[in-house]
C-alpha cells in the first residue's frame, strides 16, 4: 500500500465517505511501525481507535453490581406492590369525596340562590301583596255584609206583613165604626 493511496483514503475518511473495509485498512496501516513522516499526524487517532476497541469490562465486581441492582429492583417492585392497592383505593375515595363535596356545594348554592330570589321577589311585590290582602279582606267583609243584608231582607217582609196587618187593623177600625152600636141603634143616615 503506497503513501498516495493512503492519502486518498484518508481524505475520504475525513469526508465520511470511506467504507468499513477501508477504515480497517487505515487502522492496520497506522498500527504498523513504518509510517511516513507526512502521515504521522493521523497515527495516534487510529492507534487510539484500535486500542479502545479492545477494552473489556472487568469481571471482578460484576456479580456484586448485579446483585445490588437486583436488590434495588426488588425493593422498588415490592414497595410498588405493597403500596399499590391501598394507594389506589385512597385515590378513588378521595375522588369520590371530592365529587360529593362539589355536588353538595352546588346543591346548597343553588338552593340558596333560589331562596334569595324568592325573597327578593316577595319584597319587591310586598306592597302589591298588601294591597291584594286588603282587598281580599274587604271583599270578605263585603260578602259577610251581604249575608247580613239577606237577613235584613226578612225585615222588609215583616214590614210588609206588618203593613198588611195594619190594613187589617184599619179595616177593623172601619168595621168597628160600621158596626157601631150607636150606628146600629140610631141610623144616622135617616136622621
Amino acid at each position: 500500500m503506497n503513501t498516495k493511496e493512503i492519502e486518498g483514503i484518508l481524505q475520504r475518511y475525513y469526508d465520511g465517505e470511506t467504507s468499513l473495509a477501508e477504515e480497517k485498512l487505515l487502522k492496520e496501516f497506522f498500527s504498523g511501525g513504518d509510517v511516513p513522516p507526512q502521515l504521522r499526524l493521523h497515527q495516534p487517532l487510529f492507534r487510539f481507535f484500535t486500542m479502545e476497541a479492545s477494552e473489556t469490562i472487568s469481571e471482578d465486581n460484576q456479580d456484586e453490581i448485579l446483585i445490588r441492582k437486583l436488590e434495588q429492583y426488588k425493593r422498588e417492585t415490592s414497595s410498588v406492590v405493597k403500596s399499590h392497592p391501598g394507594k389506589k383505593r385512597l385515590y378513588y375515595l378521595s375522588g369520590i369525596a371530592a365529587g360529593l363535596l362539589i355536588m353538595l356545594g352546588l346543591i346548597f348554592a343553588i338552593k340558596n340562590e333560589t331562596l334569595k330570589r324568592h325573597h327578593d321577589e316577595a319584597v319587591r311585590t310586598s306592597t302589591e301583596l298588601a294591597f291584594l290582602e286588603t282587598r281580599q279582606a274587604l271583599l270578605m267583609v263585603s260578602v259577610g255584609l251581604n249575608t247580613g243584608l239577606d237577613a235584613v231582607q226578612h225585615f222588609t217582609t215583616l214590614d210588609n206583613a206588618i203593613g198588611q196587618v195594619h190594613k187589617f187593623n184599619k179595616f177593623n177600625i172601619y168595621q168597628t165604626q160600621f158596626i157601631n152600636p150607636e150606628w146600629m141603634q140610631t141610623p144616622s143616615i135617616n136622621k
Binding site: 475518511y13 475525513y14 465520511g16 465517505e17 499526524l41 487517532l45
Partner: peptide, 15 residues
C-alpha cells in the same frame, strides 16, 4: 454521515 465527517475533522484540527 455529515456529523461523522464533522467530528473527524474536529479531532484532526485538535491534533
Amino acid at each position: 454521515r455529515v456529523a461523522l465527517s464533522r467530528a473527524r475533522k474536529h479531532i484532526r484540527e485538535i491534533l
